[in-house]
């Protein structure tokens, strides 16, 4: 069966247009990356509710806060590297501290940005955003989930960070699947190891599940689309029932989704854990597919990590 490829930013763009049609309190801001972030799709239909902010991410976050305090639901769009990096203090004070109803949209997350290289590959935003009190952090796994995350976040109170990607990724969810902010989705049941993944790594985890099955290893796969607030129950249950956990994210393993899972498990159900992600380094230019191999983010890498986690579990018994 041929897999449909579509960038998560496209799903977000569709979600924005749908929101624009159904709600008149939606306002969109963009820091000069209107086409790239797909904010342009909203701008074309609702120009009176779109404001260009120029290359001024800090100003954009503050303006978004003021609009939100005037009763609007604001989507502030730029690349993840600039939303979370350049404007972090504005996100901290003007959004998180004040609990303003601003949805920060960071596209071009991760090394799948490809050729543009390290300055544009955001590998740190999940960490930067999740450490802020009052912040919600969502990383959709495909375009359908991105659309639903955009729509759901508009009705979710307070600041939200939405992490999206540039490149096409496999469409693996369906319109009728349940998506609820803060509730992880169990995609495959399994008893030997649990692979907890987010973003494009969910697809890699599903491929790893199939590969492991051929070796008679039963791998549970969880789509942890909301990194904060984290679904503790599903994570603890998975650790308790499988005894070994692998996390997989297109993000640094320092402070990211894997760290968040580890914080939960080390307190409630410590089991051997392996981390798939960017290993405390900057990205680099190149073809996204080749970069995934170079950075150890492929299904093969998850398979190896799963076997290692299982071996560690067995060594403990």
């Amino acid at each position: 069966m041929e897999i449909k490829m579509k960038p998560t930013r496209d799903g977000f763009g569709e979600g924005l247009v749908e929101l624009g049609q159904t709600r008149d309190d939606i306002v969109v801001l963009s820091a000069d990356l209107t086409e790239s972030t797909r904010a342009a799709w909203f701008k074309d239909k609702f120009p009176e509710r779109f404001f260009a902010m120029g290359v001024s991410e800090q100003d954009m976050m503050g303006t978004a806060a003021g609009l939100a305090l005037s009763g609007k639901v604001v989507f502030a769009c730029t690349f993840g590297a600039f939303a979370a990096g350049r404007a972090w203090d504005q996100v901290r004070v003007s959004l998180a501290y004040m609990k303003t109803n601003v949805k920060v949209v960071g596209t071009h997350g991760g090394i799948s940005v490809g050729e543009d290289g390290p300055t544009h590959q955001a590998n740190e935003e999940l960490a930067l955003m999740r450490i802020l009190p009052n912040m919600t952090v969502i990383i959709p796994c495909d375009a359908i989930e991105a659309k639903r995350a955009a729509i759901a976040s508009a009705s979710y109170p307070g600041p939200v960070y939405l992490r999206l990607g540039r490149s096409g990724v496999p469409v693996i969810t369906k319109e009728e699947d349940i998506f609820e902010i803060g509730k992880a989705n169990l995609l495959k049941d399994g008893k030997d190891v649990a692979v907890i993944a987010c973003g494009v790594e969910v697809y890699e985890a599903l491929c790893a599940h199939e590969a492991l099955k051929k070796e008679n290893i039963s791998a549970r796969v969880i789509n942890l689309h909301t990194v904060k607030p984290i679904d503790k129950d599903l994570i603890i249950k998975a650790a308790r029932e499988t005894g070994a956990v692998v996390t997989a994210e297109e993000h640094t393993i320092v402070g990211g989704m894997g760290s968040a899972v580890s914080e939960v498990l080390s307190q409630s159900c410590p089991v051997p854990m392996e981390f798939i992600g960017v290993k405390d380094r900057f990205g680099e230019s190149g073809d996204p597919k080749e970069l995934f191999k170079l950075f150890g983010l492929t299904a093969d890498d998850i398979v190896k990590a799963a076997k290692k986690a299982i071996a560690r579990k067995n060594a403990r018994d």
Partner: peptide, 8 residues
């Protein structure tokens, strides 16, 4: 910036 947001 926030004042501008209020004004918009």
């Amino acid at each position: 910036s926030i004042a501008n947001g209020f004004a918009l």
